[in-house]
Lab assay of single mutants.
Amino acid sequence: VTVHVDGVEYDFDNPEEALKFAKKVAEDKNGTYEVHGNQIRVT
Rank of each mutant, 00 (worst) to 15 (best):
V1G: 03
V1F: 15
V1Q: 04
V1L: 07
V1H: 09
V1T: 10
V1P: 04
V1I: 12
V1A: 10
V1W: 15
V1C: 14
V1E: 02
T2E: 03
T2M: 06
T2S: 08
T2P: 01
T2N: 04
T2C: 12
T2R: 10
T2Q: 07
V3D: 01
V3G: 00
V3W: 02
V3A: 02
V3L: 03
V3C: 03
V3T: 01
V3Y: 02
V3S: 00
H4L: 14
H4V: 14
H4M: 12
H4S: 10
H4W: 14
H4I: 14
H4F: 14
H4E: 09
H4D: 06
V5D: 04
V5P: 02
V5I: 10
V5A: 05
V5L: 08
V5H: 05
V5Q: 02
D6Y: 08
D6A: 07
D6H: 07
D6W: 07
D6E: 08
D6N: 13
D6C: 12
D6M: 10
D6I: 03
G7Q: 05
G7D: 07
G7T: 04
G7S: 06
G7N: 07
G7I: 03
G7R: 04
G7Y: 04
G7V: 03
V8E: 11
V8M: 12
V8L: 11
V8D: 07
V8W: 09
V8Q: 11
V8H: 11
V8N: 08
V8C: 13
E9S: 14
E9H: 12
E9L: 13
E9D: 10
E9W: 12
E9R: 14
Y10N: 03
Y10E: 02
Y10G: 00
Y10L: 04
Y10C: 08
Y10H: 07
Y10W: 08
Y10R: 03
Y10P: 00
Y10F: 11
Y10M: 04
Y10S: 02
D11I: 15
D11E: 14
D11Y: 15
D11K: 15
D11N: 15
D11M: 15
D11H: 15
F12P: 00
F12Q: 00
F12H: 02
F12G: 01
F12K: 00
F12N: 00
F12L: 02
F12A: 00
F12V: 01
D13H: 09
D13T: 11
D13C: 14
D13G: 08
D13F: 08
D13L: 10
D13S: 11
D13I: 10
D13K: 11
D13P: 12
N14V: 06
N14E: 09
N14Y: 06
N14I: 07
N14H: 07
N14G: 08
N14W: 05
N14M: 06
N14T: 13
N14C: 10
N14P: 01
P15F: 15
P15E: 13
P15G: 09
P15M: 15
P15S: 11
P15Y: 15
P15W: 15
E16I: 10
E16L: 10
E16A: 10
E16S: 09
E16D: 12
E16N: 08
E16M: 09
E17M: 08
E17R: 05
E17Y: 05
E17L: 08
E17I: 06
E17W: 05
E17A: 10
E17Q: 08
A18F: 01
A18N: 00
A18V: 00
A18I: 00
A18D: 00
A18K: 01
A18L: 01
A18H: 00
A18P: 00
L19P: 00
L19Y: 08
L19T: 05
L19F: 09
L19W: 07
L19E: 06
L19Q: 04
L19A: 04
L19N: 03
L19K: 04
K20I: 12
K20L: 12
K20C: 14
K20M: 13
K20P: 02
K20R: 13
K20Q: 12
K20S: 12
K20H: 09
F21Q: 00
F21G: 00
F21W: 09
F21C: 04
F21V: 01
F21Y: 07
F21A: 00
F21T: 00
F21R: 00
F21K: 00
F21L: 02
A22T: 03
A22F: 02
A22I: 03
A22L: 03
A22K: 01
A22V: 04
A22D: 00
A22E: 00
A22Y: 02
A22C: 06
K23T: 07
K23H: 06
K23E: 07
K23P: 00
K23L: 06
K23R: 11
K23D: 04
K23A: 10
K24Y: 08
K24V: 06
K24Q: 13
K24W: 10
K24P: 00
K24C: 13
K24H: 08
K24L: 09
K24F: 08
K24R: 11
V25Y: 08
V25F: 08
V25K: 09
V25Q: 11
V25E: 08
V25L: 12
V25H: 07
V25S: 08
V25T: 09
A26Y: 03
A26Q: 03
A26M: 04
A26G: 03
A26N: 02
A26V: 06
A26T: 05
A26L: 06
A26K: 03
A26S: 08
A26C: 14
A26E: 02
E27Y: 13
E27R: 13
E27L: 13
E27N: 11
E27Q: 13
E27H: 13
E27C: 15
E27D: 10
E27T: 11
E27S: 13
E27P: 02
E27K: 14
E27A: 14
D28Q: 13
D28K: 10
D28L: 13
D28P: 03
D28C: 13
D28R: 10
D28A: 14
D28W: 13
D28I: 11
D28M: 14
K29H: 14
K29P: 03
K29G: 10
K29C: 14
K29D: 05
K29I: 15
K29V: 14
K29E: 07
K29N: 13
N30L: 07
N30A: 08
N30W: 05
N30T: 04
N30H: 11
N30P: 03
N30D: 08
G31M: 12
G31H: 05
G31R: 07
G31Y: 11
G31D: 03
G31N: 03
G31V: 06
G31Q: 05
G31I: 04
T32S: 13
T32A: 09
T32N: 09
T32Y: 13
T32P: 02
T32V: 10
T32Q: 10
T32R: 12
T32H: 12
T32M: 09
Y33F: 12
Y33T: 04
Y33L: 11
Y33Q: 02
Y33N: 01
Y33W: 11
Y33C: 08
E34A: 09
E34T: 13
E34F: 12
E34H: 12
E34Y: 12
E34C: 15
E34K: 08
E34D: 06
V35K: 06
V35N: 04
V35I: 13
V35S: 05
V35Q: 08
V35D: 03
V35Y: 08
V35H: 06
H36D: 13
H36M: 13
H36L: 13
H36T: 11
H36W: 11
H36R: 12
H36G: 04
H36F: 14
H36A: 10
H36S: 12
H36Q: 12
G37V: 05
G37I: 04
G37R: 05
G37S: 05
G37A: 06
G37F: 06
G37C: 12
G37K: 05
G37M: 06
G37W: 04
N38T: 09
N38E: 04
N38G: 06
N38M: 06
N38R: 08
N38C: 12
N38V: 05
N38H: 07
N38W: 05
Q39D: 10
Q39N: 11
Q39I: 15
Q39A: 09
Q39T: 14
Q39W: 11
Q39K: 09
Q39G: 05
Q39F: 13
Q39V: 15
Q39H: 13
Q39Y: 13
Q39E: 12
Q39R: 09
Q39C: 14
I40T: 02
I40Q: 01
I40E: 01
I40Y: 04
I40P: 00
I40G: 01
I40N: 01
I40W: 03
I40V: 05
I40S: 01
R41P: 02
R41A: 07
R41E: 08
R41L: 15
R41W: 15
R41Y: 15
R41N: 11
V42A: 02
V42T: 03
V42Q: 01
V42G: 01
V42H: 02
V42M: 04
V42W: 03
V42C: 04
V42N: 01
V42E: 02
T43G: 07
T43N: 12
T43S: 12
T43P: 04
T43I: 15
T43V: 15
T43A: 08
T43Y: 15
T43W: 15
T43Q: 11
